[in-house]
Lab assay of single mutants.
Amino acid sequence: EVYKVKIKIERVLPNGEKVEEEITIEVEGMSEEELLALARELAAEPGVRIKEIEIEKLPP
Rank of each mutant, 00 (worst) to 15 (best):
A44F: 14
T24E: 06
E45P: 03
E45D: 15
P59F: 14
I9A: 02
L36A: 05
E10I: 04
E56Q: 11
N15E: 14
P46F: 09
L36R: 05
K51R: 09
P14M: 15
L13D: 05
E28C: 08
E28K: 08
G29M: 06
E56M: 13
S31Y: 11
P59E: 10
V2E: 04
T24L: 12
E33Y: 10
E26G: 05
L58S: 07
E41V: 10
L36K: 08
K6P: 00
E28A: 07
P59A: 14
N15T: 14
P46L: 08
G16T: 01
E45S: 09
V2M: 15
S31E: 10
L13T: 12
L58K: 07
E20N: 10
R11L: 02
L13S: 06
E1P: 12
E21P: 01
L36P: 03
P46M: 10
I23E: 01
K4S: 07
N15Y: 03
E54T: 15
I9G: 00
V48A: 04
V12M: 04
E28D: 07
T24I: 11
G29W: 08
P14N: 10
I53A: 00
G16Y: 03
I53S: 00
E52K: 06
P46Q: 13
E1K: 08
M30W: 13
E22C: 15
Y3P: 01
V12H: 14
E26M: 09
K18R: 13
V48P: 00
G29C: 07
T24K: 08
R40C: 04
E17V: 07
P60N: 09
A43W: 06
R11I: 04
I53M: 04
I53C: 02
K18C: 09
L13P: 01
A39G: 03
A44M: 14
I53R: 00
P14I: 05
E26I: 08
R11M: 03
E28P: 10
G16A: 02
E45C: 15
Y3K: 02
R49I: 10
M30P: 06
K57I: 07
R40P: 02
P46E: 07
L35S: 08
E33G: 05
E17R: 04
A37W: 12
E52C: 08
K57Y: 13
G29L: 06
R49N: 10
E10H: 02
Y3I: 06
K4C: 03
L35G: 13
A37P: 02
P59R: 12
K8Q: 09
K57Q: 06
K51C: 11
E21W: 11
E20I: 05
V12G: 04
V12W: 06
P46N: 05
E33F: 14
E1N: 10
E10S: 03
E20T: 05
E45R: 07
E32T: 15
G29P: 06
I7R: 00
E45Q: 05
V27S: 07
L35A: 13
V12P: 03
P14H: 13
E21G: 07
A39E: 03
E54I: 12
E45Y: 06
K6V: 07
I55G: 00
K57R: 05
L42N: 02
E1R: 05
G16C: 04
R11P: 00
E17Q: 13
E21L: 05
Y3C: 03
V19Q: 11
L58T: 06
I50S: 00
E22T: 11
I50D: 00
E52F: 12
R40A: 08
P60C: 12
A39P: 01
E26Y: 04
E54P: 00
L36C: 11
K4Q: 13
R11E: 00
G16P: 00
E33W: 11
L58H: 05
A43V: 14
A44I: 12
V5A: 05
V48T: 07
E52T: 13
L35K: 01
E52L: 07
G29N: 12
E26F: 08
R40V: 11
A44C: 05
I7T: 01
G47P: 01
V48R: 01
E52W: 13
E17N: 14
A43D: 07
L36V: 09
R49T: 13
K57P: 06
S31P: 07
E17P: 02
K4W: 06
V48I: 06
A43R: 02
A43T: 14
E41I: 10
L42W: 12
Y3S: 03
L42Q: 05
L35V: 15
K8V: 13
K18N: 15
I23F: 12
K4F: 05
I7Q: 00
E32S: 08
A37I: 11
Y3Q: 02
E28S: 04
V2G: 06
L13R: 09
E22N: 13
R40I: 04
A39L: 13
T24C: 09
L38C: 14
N15W: 07
V2I: 10
L35C: 12
K51W: 08
P60S: 08
V2Y: 06
T24G: 03
N15H: 08
P14T: 11
Y3D: 01
A44H: 08
V19T: 08
V27R: 07
E56I: 12
A44Q: 12
E33A: 12
L42S: 04
L58M: 14
E28T: 14
L42C: 09
E32M: 15
P14A: 14
E32I: 12
I50C: 02
I50A: 00
E1S: 15
E17W: 05
K4N: 04
K8T: 15
R49H: 14
A37S: 10
E17T: 12
G16W: 02
I7F: 15
P46H: 11
V5L: 14
E20L: 06
I23C: 11
V19E: 09
I53T: 01
I50P: 00
K6M: 14
Y3F: 12
E1T: 13
V48M: 03
E52M: 06
P14L: 10
V12Q: 13
K57S: 08
K57L: 06
T24M: 14
P59C: 15
G47K: 01
E52H: 12
I7L: 08
R49D: 15
I23N: 02
I25Y: 14
E56F: 13
K6S: 12
R40H: 05
V27E: 04
G16N: 03
M30Q: 12
K4R: 15
E41S: 12
T24R: 05
P59K: 08
K6G: 01
E1H: 13
G29T: 09
A39N: 01
A44R: 07
E21V: 03
L42R: 06
